[in-house]
Design a protein around this nucleic acid. Structure first.
Lengths: 332, 332
DNA sequence: TTGAAAGCGCTAACAT
DNA sequence: ATGTTAGCGCTTTCAA
C-alpha cells in the first residue's frame, strides 16, 4: 500500500489542494512546506503517475523506435536519450522493429495505445506515412538519422555528405590516386548521402569517377567483407578505401586480414564509428566519428521543448558535423 | 479526444459494465458483442491503460535493467524479451546502468515510482540488496545471466561452467597440449564460472593447471587484445586459447592478426557469442553460442506466470545449455 | 495561500 | 447477462 496525497494531507493537517500545489511547484507557506516534506519522507510517498496521467492526459512516457537494438550506433544514442529524458521525469519505451515495416507499424500502434506523449524514431519505412497518425494525435515526433520529406516534424542528423567528403579529401591530400568506397544500401538515406559526398569530393578535385571503385554493401559485417573482396578483385591499383559504416568496417578488416593486405602500406583505409574498435585495431584505424552524445542531447532537448510548449512544433532540422579521428591507417 | 468506454456504451445502448466485461474477456451476448465490436472499430477505441492501471493497481509496465545496452548479448536478449512481453500487453522500460551501482540504484528507484509490475535485471551490484525493496513491494524479479545468492527470485542463466568445459574438452580431444584461457573480471559471476569450467576440464584429463596459461581480461575489446598479447609473451608453447566473451574474442583476433599468427596452424582458438562475427572471420571461428532466444523466452515465460498468479513465485532457477558452433579455428 | 469538491476512464461489487 | 454506482489518486476550478 503506497502512500497517497490523502495520507500526506492527513498527516500534515493540510488540504489535498495544498499538497498537490506543493508537488507541482506551486507556492506553499514555508512552514507547511517543511511539514509536507517531512511527511513525504516519513511515508515514502511518490506521486502515482497513473493517477496524474489520467487527470492530465499525459503519460510521461516516450516511445522510441529503432531499426536494430543490436547496433552500436542505435544503442549508444538510445542509452543517452533514455538517461536525458529520465532526468526530466520521462520514461522511454524502446521498440526494436528489426528493420521491418510491419513490425514498425505494430509498435507505433502499441505506443499510441499506451498514450505516449511523443515519439523518437529512426524510421524504417521511407515515406513517413506511419507517423502521420502520431502527428494527427498532436504528439511530437523527432526523427533521428534519416530524412523524411513532407513530414512536419523535427529531424536530427549528421552531415553524412560532409563525412564522406572529408574522408575522401583526406585521401586525396595525402596523394592517393585510386580511391574506393564501400557504401550502404541504396535505399537508405545515410548511404545515399555518403555516396554523394564521395562523388562530390572526387569531382571537386578532378578525379574521374569510375563505378568499379564503388562496392555496395548492406551495412553488415558479412556484406562489408564481400564488398572489400569485390573491390580488390576488380581493382589491382586500388590504394585507398572509405567504408561507410561500422559493421562493414569490421567486415572489410576481416577480408583484408585474410588476404594479408598491409594497412596502410598496401592500402589506406578510413572506417566509420566505434572509436574503441578503431583504437583496438592494428594499425589503429582512422574513422569518421559521429557525435553520438550531441545527437542524443539535441533529440532530448527538442522533444522536451515540444512537450513543454505543446503546439509549438518548429519542425527544426539539426545537422551535426562529424569529424575524422586519425589513426595510422592512411599512407603518408 | 480519444473515445472512452462511455462513448461505446452510448453508441451501443449498453451499460458500462457490459463493455468492461467484454474488454476483460467476460461473457457477453453474441448480439451485443457484435455491436460493441462495431462501435470500437468505428470510434477507434482503445483502453486507457492509465485509467485501468489506476483502478487495478497494475501498470502493465516492466522495468528492465542491464549493465550495458551497447553489448550484443544484452541487446539481443532484451530485444526478444520486449517483443514477447508486448505480445502479452506489457510495455518495457529499459534502463542501461553502465555497470554503475549508483545508477542501478537510481533506476530501480525510478522504476518503482513508475509502478512497474515487475523487474528483469542483469545485476551490476553483487549481493542483490537493491532488489530487496522490489521484492518487498510484492513485485516479481527475474535475474538474467548472474547468480544472486540469498535473494528469493527467479534466475535464468546458461551453463557457464559447461560452456568452458566443453571448449577445453574440444581442444584436449584434438590433441592440444598447452591450452590457455582469456577470462573475464574475477568479480563477475559468469567469468568465475567459465574459469572453473576451464580448470575442471584440465583436471579431469590430468592436465596440470598452470596459471601462466590464464590471462585475465575485462570483457572489452582492448582487454582481450592485451590478454592475448600477455599469453603469447609468456608462453612460447601455447597451442590453443579459449576466450570467454565476445568483445575479448574480437580483441584477441586483432592481436593475433597483428602478430601474424596463423589460425589454426599456429594456434587454435575458441571464441564466444556472435555467430555473425564468427562466420565472417577468417578462418571462421569456433565459438560458444548462448541460446539467446531461449533465454528471452524463459525470462518472459517466468515473469508472465508470476504476473498472472500473484504471490506464487517459485523462485525457480533455469540453467540453459550452450553449444559449440564449429568453425575452422581448431587444429585437427 | 489554502480547502472543498468534481471528475479524468476504468473496474468491481452489487443488484437486477 | 447487464445496469448502477463507488472509488482508484490525482489535478483543477472555485471559494474562502
Amino acid at each position: 500500500m503506497a502512500a497517497t496525497i490523502k495520507d500526506i494531507a492527513q498527516k500534515t493537517g493540510l488540504g489535498l489542494a495544498t499538497i498537490s500545489s506543493y508537488l507541482n511547484g506551486g507556492s506553499v507557506r514555508e512552514k507547511n512546506r517543511l511539514k509536507i516534506e517531512a511527511a513525504i519522507a516519513e511515508l515514502d510517498f511518490a506521486v502515482n503517475e497513473m493517477a496524474r496521467g489520467l487527470k492530465t492526459n499525459r503519460s510521461k512516457n516516450i516511445g522510441v523506435i529503432i531499426p536494430e537494438l543490436d547496433n552500436t550506433f542505435c544503442a549508444r544514442i538510445i542509452s543517452e536519450v533514455t538517461d536525458n529524458l529520465r532526468t526530466h521525469g520521462y520514461a522511454t519505451m524502446i521498440c526494436d522493429c528489426r528493420t521491418d515495416e510491419k513490425r514498425e507499424a505494430d509498435v507505433i500502434e502499441f505506443l499510441l495505445q499506451r498514450r505516449v506523449d511523443g515519439i523518437i524514431i529512426m524510421p524504417t519505412e521511407k515515406t513517413g506515412k506511419l507517423l502521420k497518425q502520431v502527428l494527427a494525435a498532436g504528439k511530437p515526433v523527432v526523427v533521428i538519422d534519416r530524412r523524411l520529406e513532407h513530414i512536419p516534424c523535427a529531424q536530427v542528423l549528421v552531415d553524412n555528405q560532409g563525412a564522406a567528403y572529408d574522408a575522401v579529401l583526406r585521401f586525396i591530400q595525402s596523394g592517393h590516386k585510386n580511391i574506393g568506397m564501400i557504401g550502404g544500401p541504396t535505399d537508405i538515406y545515410t548511404a545515399q548521402e555518403r555516396y554523394k559526398g564521395y562523388q562530390k569530393a572526387l569531382a571537386k578535385y578532378k578525379y574521374s569517377f569510375d563505378k568499379k571503385y564503388f562496392a555496395c554493401g548492406d551495412y553488415t559485417i558479412t556484406g562489408g567483407a564481400r564488398a572489400m573482396k569485390e573491390l580488390l578483385q576488380n581493382n589491382a591499383d586500388l590504394d585507398a578505401v572509405f567504408v561507410a559504416n561500422y559493421e562493414m568496417t569490421v567486415g572489410a578488416m576481416i577480408e583484408l586480414n585474410e588476404q594479408e593486405i598491409k594497412i596502410p602500406e598496401q592500402l589506406s583505409l578510413i572506417g566509420f564509428d566505434n572509436l574503441e574498435f578503431a583504437k583496438a585495431s592494428n594499425p589503429s584505424l582512422s574513422v569518421v566519428i559521429q557525435p553520438l552524445k550531441e545527437i542524443a542531447e539535441e533529440v532530448s532537448r527538442i522533444l522536451l521543448s515540444y512537450l513543454e510548449h505543446a503546439g509549438e512544433q518548429t519542425c527544426e532540422t539539426v545537422i551535426l558535423p562529424t569529424y575524422l579521428k586519425e589513426g595510422r591507417s592512411i599512407r603518408k
